[in-house]
Simulated scan of single mutants.
Amino acid sequence: MAHAGKSGRLVVAAFIATTLAQEAADAAKVQWRKVADQLRPTAPKLTTFMDTAEEDMLAYMSFPPQHRTKLHSTNPLERVNGGIKRRTEVVGIFPNEDAITRLAGASLLEQNDEWAVQRARYMTLESVSQLSDDQLVTLPPMAA
């Protein structure tokens, strides 16, 4: 498999995709181990990497199923970072560190407000609040 080229990479990608498509965390872990064990004789470097990366690769499985598809993308984060970058480039030189913090903070607050009132939210506050073990965590009142 190490010298199988593009077709070998596609096979490995398909194997890993079956793991990431599992509904339950336990099933994904079992599938991950099965894929690693199947590849071990032909791709030892890859399987060593898989052994090391298993926990990180399957971390998203601790989230509710409705969140998992959204966790595959960093697009929302990249968009926020792009907005901050655009605003800082307009200013150019800042007088001090506090000025940068204020500008970035204002940009983040604006983005938070947009996400709070958005019709099709990236993740709803209600579904995210279920992830907390802290009983003191409460949601702010919803805007009408």
Score class of each variant (00 low, 15 high):
1 M>R: 00
1 M>Y: 06
3 H>R: 09
4 A>Y: 04
4 A>K: 00
5 G>R: 05
7 S>N: 05
10 L>N: 07
13 A>V: 09
15 F>V: 01
17 A>M: 05
20 L>P: 01
22 Q>W: 00
22 Q>G: 01
22 Q>L: 04
26 D>A: 13
26 D>P: 02
27 A>F: 02
28 A>V: 05
30 V>Y: 00
35 V>D: 01
41 P>W: 04
41 P>T: 11
42 T>N: 06
43 A>T: 13
44 P>Q: 04
45 K>S: 15
45 K>T: 15
47 T>Y: 03
53 A>L: 12
56 D>Y: 13
60 Y>W: 12
62 S>M: 10
63 F>V: 03
66 Q>R: 09
67 H>F: 12
70 K>N: 14
71 L>W: 07
72 H>K: 13
75 N>M: 09
80 V>W: 01
81 N>W: 07
84 I>L: 12
84 I>R: 00
86 R>L: 10
88 T>S: 10
94 F>Y: 10
94 F>L: 07
98 D>W: 00
102 R>T: 08
107 S>F: 05
111 Q>V: 14
111 Q>E: 10
112 N>H: 06
114 E>T: 08
115 W>P: 01
116 A>G: 01
119 R>G: 10
122 Y>C: 12
123 M>H: 14
124 T>I: 01
127 S>R: 04
134 D>E: 09
136 L>H: 11
137 V>I: 14
137 V>Y: 05
138 T>Y: 05
138 T>P: 01
139 L>Q: 15
141 P>V: 07
142 M>N: 11
